[in-house]
Simulated assay, not measured.
Amino acid sequence: MSQSLFQKLTAFIQTPLGLSVALGGGFILVFYFLLQTKHHRREPVLSPDAWREFPIVEKIKISPNTALYRFGLPDPEDNLGLPAGQHITIAAEIDGKDIVRNYTPTTGNDDLGHFDLVVKTYEKGNVSRYLSLLKIGDKGQFRYSPELAAEFGLIAGGTGITPMLQVVRYSLFNPGDPTKFSLIYANVNEEDILLKTELDYLVAMFPYRFKVYYVLNNPPAGWKGGVGFVSKEHIAEYLPGPGPEAKILVCGPPPMVTAMKGHLDALKYPAPRTVSKVDDPVFIF
């Protein structure tokens, strides 16, 4: 992307909630590399060989440093068509440097007319830069299907919840899918728990198929969840044990992922590969 084009992507828009986002008059550019799937209800929204523009229609602050960005699709009946477990690769040229980040939409193919990204803003970063140019690529190795396992154990930290929620939603709302999910979700403070309202709603709607155990480094008074870091004991108590009918998914900051690998090894789960494959008993996003 040329510098002149990047400069054009700096006009501010006013969202319905009164929040400004620097995204080129409210548009993002995306490039689609995914093959068509049976989940498309209409012709593919994104082209494999052309850039497309999508308007940003809403920005919702969901924690002190995290926001949900909603992008509109061309028609109210369109969906993104992204297979469960896949992510979006955001690439942009900023100040002469290529910036690449991966994000998993929190919406599924049953969400029509839009797709959502939950993005955390870091102290030395500028999220509006990273959202200025999106490339959607089928780079993820995990693609969910009901035949993968009878039960999943999920370990997430921070924004690592997004691929977990995508898979869980896809499964729970499929009437023919009996798969069960147990999630350990770790954060620093209570206000850092992303998408908690939706997670708790899914637990209430599907109590026999979905359970969540929250862990906080700094819990408030009266906290009933886990305290500190996710431990070997947490995994042993709240997730399915190693076996042919269970699969473990892990997504979070690198130090957390490293610690989880150690805990899983101590509990006799199979060791994950350097690059996880969909059939692996332990899959690292």
Rank of each mutant, 00 (worst) to 15 (best):
S171M: 03
A259Y: 06
R101K: 09
M256K: 02
P64T: 14
T107P: 06
P219L: 00
N217P: 13
K224G: 12
A259L: 13
K247M: 11
A246P: 15
R143S: 13
I13P: 13
F71D: 05
K61I: 15
N217T: 15
G72A: 03
R209F: 00
S128G: 10
V119D: 05
G72H: 01
P281A: 03
I99M: 13
G157Y: 00
N102L: 08
K59V: 13
V278N: 05
K135A: 09
Q7D: 13
T121M: 12
N187W: 00
H234L: 11
V275K: 11
L35R: 15
K38H: 09
A22E: 09
G158F: 05
H234T: 15
A246Y: 07
T10D: 11
R273H: 08
H263N: 07
L82R: 01
E151C: 13
L29H: 12
E233L: 10
P76K: 00
F31L: 11
M256V: 15
F27D: 11
D111S: 12
G225I: 09
V278F: 02
V100R: 11
P105V: 00
Y69H: 11
D265E: 10
D280L: 04
L195F: 02
E77W: 00
S276Q: 08
A50K: 02
D111P: 04
L46F: 00
Y185W: 03
L183Y: 03
Q86R: 04
L29S: 07
E191C: 13
F210S: 08
L82Q: 09
Q86E: 04
F229H: 10
G72V: 01
L29F: 06
A221V: 15
P253S: 04
N102D: 12
L264M: 11
K124F: 08
K97C: 07
I193Y: 02
I248S: 05
R169Y: 01
A92Q: 06
S171Q: 08
S47I: 15
T274Y: 03
E43N: 10
L165T: 03
K38M: 06
L17S: 08
P55H: 02
L19Y: 04
K180L: 06
D279T: 10
F285G: 07
H234M: 09
N174E: 10
D192N: 07
G85F: 01
S276F: 00
P178R: 01
E93K: 12
V30Q: 05
N217L: 15
V227D: 11
L267G: 05
G72D: 02
